[in-house]
């Protein structure tokens, strides 16, 4: 699957209600001894709109402060879905959450560690 097929894909909760769309994918480089480095997906950021994070989620002190505040405010309802909570269908159609929307952590709690 292409990143372009993952991004912007609508997401529904276990009851089939629309909760948002995928706006970012978080991955971690992994290396087991004697093998090549690989990059595995940790989870997905789900937001209500199309707005990009503009990189402000990456570290806490990224300026200018006004823009950081604005991006955080626009993403205050966005949540982070760990890889095992979201199923992506192979064809078209929404991605489906395995847990309730409200059980997912807020993006601001996960992505802006203080």
């Amino acid at each position: 699957m292409r990143a372009s097929e993952v991004l912007d894909r609508p997401v529904v909760d276990p009851e089939g209600r629309r909760v948002g769309r995928i706006v970012e994918v978080r991955a971690t480089p992994e290396q087991s001894p004697g093998t090549q480095v690989i990059m595995v997906v940790d989870g997905f950021v789900i937001a209500r709109g199309h707005l990009r994070l503009l990189d402000y989620q990456r570290y806490h002190e990224h300026g200018p402060a006004l823009l950081r505040w604005l991006v955080k405010r626009l993403h205050r309802w966005s949540r982070f879905a760990p890889h095992d909570t979201l199923t992506l269908p192979d064809g078209p159609g929404p991605a489906r959450l395995g847990v309730a929307w409200t059980e997912l952590p807020y993006l601001l709690d996960v992505a802006w560690p203080d």
């Binding site: 970012e24 991955a27 990009r52």
Partner: peptide, 12 residues
């Protein structure tokens, strides 16, 4: 090669 980062945000 990932610059000591723990995670990589693919879009960003």
């Amino acid at each position: 090669w990932w610059q000591g980062q723990r995670t990589v945000d693919l879009v960003s």
